[in-house]
Design a protein around this nucleic acid. Structure first.
Lengths: 264, 264
DNA sequence: CGATCTGTTGACTGTTATCAACTCCGGTGG
DNA sequence: CCACCGGAGTTGATAACAGTCAACAGATCG
């Protein structure tokens, strides 16, 4: 059991969606957590589990994967700083597996700590609520993606979203980021077959929008990718991101695209 | 401004997902609300709105509709008793339109009332949180639906879900329920074209699973429809529904299907 | 009674899944 | 060190699925 190691990334995440006072940071800094490492495709939580702690993702990617149908639809992807099973606090059984996309480092923090923190600080309570609502906003946006985009723009949109969320937590510098997940994982997230996902990625490469080699994605032409995907970062609920200049840039991009489309 | 008219359906809904004490019911009964009627495809909330009240749906159907792409993807459908914009309490701008599917009756209840109630009753506070989490569960399930089912099973699943949720609030007696929405609306929810939606419905009719005439859907063969859709009502988070016998029946059905599938 | 929205149909096109085979790479054990 | 193995990526052929366009029928509502 350690203290004061897991809190920074998560605190940054909360600060990116709501006001967090120095007192709140003190509270979070006393967070008792257990760190654990997991390898790719390992399940951190299983369907039906009723965990008594929350998983805070420190490194790598986690996803919620529904195993009922097909090859296991992925319903959401999480980046460092996220708390994927925050909603588990309410105690109902989990309805999917929380699974690692590539090797991950996770901190477990007991539900009791969050309940204590929520009682002690209205600001943190609100931040935690907003974090859950932000997740719901991602889900809605993903429904729009699955329902109304073709597979090329779907994949492009997912890559935009991951890149943008990684930037917000200070990862993904210089337009590249780690992609330890497989093309089959990407396919499961986009609701397409693995073979088709492969062809889509080749198409994105052919258009010189990105590279994907040695478990790294490099965005070659961010404006074009954003335009192709119709990516609007509004829905992420990121209020005060880590890199305001980049945020500004993407905002401007998206707006420019909007104008472009409107004028056509 | 009226009191004590809107609360019953909503209270029933809360009771179906968490414990509600007689004291809680008293609190809810003092709910000050404004009733209003709206016609089909009218927007109750618009993208970007920051409402100061919650809409409680009393009669009809509401949906969240994203208007950016295609013909307006529907991300969720709500039935009487639901509070579709409960998450608006946190104050961030809405990211889609809340739109009527057919004529609706809505009660508006100020956010202040909910904040007061949350402070006064931990039980109701938890019930409201659970209501929001149940919505998120619906979203996840809809992602699975869009991502891993073909259009026939997608439509079948949506119809199962609506029928089941209506039963839980005491509507949809005798295997039929009102369908004032258009086939285009259904298509927008399922992420398919209106023409294709029409053909899917014809296929469901041809298979004698349901009828759809004069704004009414009649389920002719519920077990077969549930089997086709792979419908498992677990994810709805309905704990203690209005009609336990029917609930039991559907549970048994779903379990039976599960066994059927497993034995094949 | 006309205007409009909704539902229906057919022909055609485009997208995506499926199947099968093959390559490439990283590990693992002999 | 090398042979082997399994997972991941790649390719081509084919079939299934769903979108688009255009036209018309039927309902509904003023």
């Amino acid at each position: 059991m350690q203290t004061g190691f897991a809190f920074t990334k998560f605190a940054d995440r909360l600060a990116s969606i709501a006001d967090v006072t120095p007192d709140d940071l003190d509270l979070l800094a006393r967070m008792p957590s257990t760190i654990s490492h997991h390898s790719s495709h390992e399940n951190i939580r299983r369907k039906g589990d009723r965990p008594s702690s929350c998983a805070l993702l420190l490194q790598g990617y986690l996803c919620w994967r529904d195993v009922e149908l097909g090859y296991g639809q992925i319903t959401s992807i999480h980046v460092p700083g996220d708390a994927p099973d925050l909603h588990g606090i309410e105690g109902s059984g989990l309805d999917a597996n929380l699974s690692a996309l590539g090797p991950v480092v996770v901190a477990f923090v007991s539900h009791d700590f969050f309940r204590h923190v929520s009682r002690a600080s209205p600001g943190l309570c609100r931040a935690l609520s907003l974090a859950m609502l932000a997740d719901a906003s991602l889900l809605r946006n993903w429904i729009v993606n699955l329902g109304s985009r073709d597979s090329l723009t779907r994949v492009a949109h997912l890559i935009c979203e991951i890149g943008y969320r990684l930037r917000a937590v200070g990862l993904a510098r210089d337009d590249w980021f780690a992609s330890p997940f497989t093309q089959s994982d990407l396919a499961a997230a986009c609701g397409i077959s693995a073979v088709h996902a492969n062809r889509i990625i080749q198409e994105l490469r052919r258009r010189r929008l990105l590279q994907w080699q040695s478990r790294t994605i490099t965005i070659l032409d961010w404006p074009a990718l954003v335009r192709l995907a119709g990516f609007r970062p509004d829905y992420l609920g990121l209020r005060d991101p880590h890199s305001p200049d980049q945020h500004q840039a993407a905002e401007t991009l998206a707006t420019a695209d909007c104008h472009l489309l409107a004028s056509q």
